[in-house]
Amino acid sequence: MFLINCPYCGERDQSEFSCGGEAHIERPKQPTELSDDQWAEYLFMRKNIKGIQFERWNHIHGCRKWFNIVRDTSNDKIHAVYKMGERPPVK
């Protein structure tokens, strides 16, 4: 049960949030121009890193805002939290 520093509300218990999986996977602007393989890459393929991972989180039982975090999945340490659309911190 980690604490997440929501960029809009501050530090809150993990139980207030839900994880939306890997961050920075942009929905293709022109899906119809993609091959099956390219579309499948967007649709299905996700990383599952042991270590530093960029993730989307939603303060679902709070402000309902989506934002990104940088989390080390091996020890749950959160290295950075940043708003949607902000530039991710360099690895």
Binding site: G20, E26, R56, N58, R64, W66, M84
Partner: peptide
């Protein structure tokens, strides 16, 4: 509602 919010906030801001 969550799904729609997700698209609005992240894909179509």
């Amino acid at each position: 509602l969550s799904k729609l919010e997700d698209y609005l906030q992240t894909e179509w801001p």
